[in-house]
Amino acid sequence: MPESEALHASHRLEYPYSRSVGPVIGAFLTGLREGRLLGVRGAGGSVIVPPTEYDPTTGGDTGEMVEVGPGGVVESWAWVSHPLPKHPLPSPFAWALIRLDGADTALLHAVDSGGPDQLASGDRVTVRFRPAAERIGAMADIESFVPQGGAPR
């Protein structure tokens, strides 16, 4: 049999893991499902988003949940010209570190700015949630962030 007659097929290996999220990330994800962005109060009053169960500077417990956003400031970003199937948007977008209003740390998410020439560090963006009926309590409940006001520059 010539080599060209060897068969081939696509094969997917998939492990359907699920993980327990704990009380703090659980509250954050519950907030996303409700269309709200939540951080947590850390040592010295700083607000950590996404929230953690411990303060990254002292290692102590974090405190109350604090609502942040829905707007924020792009701290830095990288343009994705060729999105992959697992990415949040099918069209080119930016991965950005976004410091939400009321937060002291940055959250990583997609910004749908329309093009790399329409985004700059320091720009204001605002959250765009998926429709309520589609939200499940996961990071993808945020479809992306968009330039505040919506209009490309």
């Binding site: 049999m1 080599e3 007659e5 060897a6 068969l7 081939h8 097929a9 696509s10 094969h11 997917r12 290996l13 998939e14 492990y15 359907p16 893991y17 699920s18 993980r19 327990s20 999220v21 659980g26 509250a27 994800l29 519950t30 499902r33 309590g137 996961a138």
Partner: peptide
């Protein structure tokens, strides 16, 4: 409240069994 998160891990292969197994 949300207590769990589905985190599937997925690898897509193009599998070739080779001449003998074919």
């Amino acid at each position: 409240p949300v207590t769990t998160l589905a985190t599937p891990i997925r690898l897509d292969f193009e599998f070739t069994p080779g001449v003998a197994q074919s």
